[in-house]
Amino acid sequence: MRKKINIIFDYFPSDTSGGLLTTYKRLISLLKDDYDFEIYSIFNCEKTAMGESDHVRINNILKRKHFPSIMNLRSNLKHFQILSVIKQFLFFLMYFFYIPICRSKIKSILQNDTINIVVSPATAMFCPKSLKFILEVHSNFDYFFGPKSSLLGRMQANLMREPTLVLFRTKSDALKAKEIFNSYYIYNFFSTSSYPTVDLDCIKKRDKKIIFMGRLAPEKNLLKMLQIAKKLKNQVPSFKLDIYGTGVMEPVLKEFIKNNDLASNVELKGFCNNLHIYRNYSLLWITSDYEGFGLVIIEAKANGVPAISTNWGEGVFEVIDNEKNGLILETNEDFVTQTIKLWDNSGLLLQMSQNALKSFSKFNQVEARKKWLEILTKFEKNDYKFTF
């Protein structure tokens, strides 16, 4: 009989929600020959199967469909949408009201003879104390557990049931957590098995075009990106920045683009799941305040596109080797200066692009599969000692 993995969400995300759904689709594809999978959504996501993977069933634990969004609440407050604020506030009250109800339901549904993977501390709040589970943290350690943790992150960490094992996205975060939890790390990964080879000529032909791919969320600090774009336009009037994704920041970004005469340079392209698209660009920009890992950085690496990123946490140095396969910068002026430097020095840009492509190997599916199987085997044996 095949072993089974349950993946538990507080709310199963939409197809356009960003990296979280992509991460678990890739995990299921990675381990489908070894495990059967089943998905549980605490709140009703109105789906019964996982998109194209119809063999993966989605079970909705609650009938309730409405799920609160802190980003929507912030947006409603900012725009004085009082009725929407009240509606979101009621959603939050109901959200916490359902915690004890869900703990009881999950206790009767999920057993410890299967592997249970909980996708976030928010979801772990709904888990019963008796449940043995792996908690995955997709943001960084400090957001939930550090001395400067956010109010929302700290609240979720305090309310969640203690996990059996916590998996972070970076080694640095896992090491921070060792004194608190059984902890380890697993990098996000990306498969290039169906991809054509990225050759030298492809890289050389790239224009002065920059890509961003991800959710249009406050923590991505996309207004900083647009401020950098505004400065860059003064020196490179013909450059292009394409922003792929959807989210609550979209109206704010549209307004900034319009008010700062950036329409000919910056375009909001909407949701995109065609990862070949990176090959049309010479650089990836990341301006996040914090990240758990930065999935788009390895997707860009797989296409030979170096990233210029803010220092969003210690983990950034695990995915970018500064000044070799990308750049880690702070100020808007540095972003502009270094972008121009790379565009003006084709040899330097070519070398950094090649280095990005070469450094992708530790994030490929072969390495990920090996590490996941090690983690799951040890978890089943109640062995939580890992070598870092």
Rank of each mutant, 00 (worst) to 15 (best):
L159D: 01
T377P: 01
F388G: 03
W285I: 04
M71H: 05
T22N: 05
I228Y: 00
Q156Y: 13
T310W: 00
F239G: 04
L83H: 05
K378V: 14
I28W: 02
K358E: 13
I115F: 01
R215A: 15
V56W: 00
D10H: 12
K378A: 15
V336Q: 02
F126M: 08
I297K: 00
E52M: 04
N60C: 12
P196E: 06
R2C: 13
S104N: 10
K208D: 13
S191A: 12
K148N: 15
F293R: 05
S150L: 12
D207T: 08
P237G: 15
R57H: 07
I61K: 04
L20T: 15
A229S: 08
F91E: 15
I228N: 00
T23Y: 07
I86R: 02
I203N: 07
F144Y: 15
R103W: 00
S69T: 09
N76V: 10
P163A: 14
F141P: 04
L295R: 11
L159V: 02
A122V: 14
V119M: 06
F335W: 00
L165P: 07
L357S: 03
G315F: 05
P128N: 10
S41V: 10
L151E: 08
L350T: 12
I297R: 00
I7V: 12
T387F: 04
E323S: 14
Y195M: 09
Y24L: 05
T48F: 01
E219C: 09
K171C: 07
L373M: 12
E367T: 14
L93W: 02
L30A: 04
I210Y: 14
I297N: 04
L342E: 05
S238F: 11
D334S: 13
L200Y: 15
P237R: 12
N345L: 03
D383G: 14
N303L: 01
R161G: 00
F12V: 13
E367H: 14
F239D: 02
K78D: 06
N345E: 06
W372M: 09
F317H: 13
G18N: 03
L350E: 15
F133R: 01
S41I: 09
L373Q: 06
A263W: 00
I203G: 09
S108M: 09
T170W: 06
L275Y: 11
L110G: 13
E323Y: 08
F12C: 14
S150K: 06
I82V: 14
Y98S: 04
N221G: 08
R64A: 08
R279K: 13
G304L: 06
K47S: 07
Q156G: 07
V119C: 14
Q88S: 08
K171V: 03
L90V: 10
F92A: 13
K324Y: 02
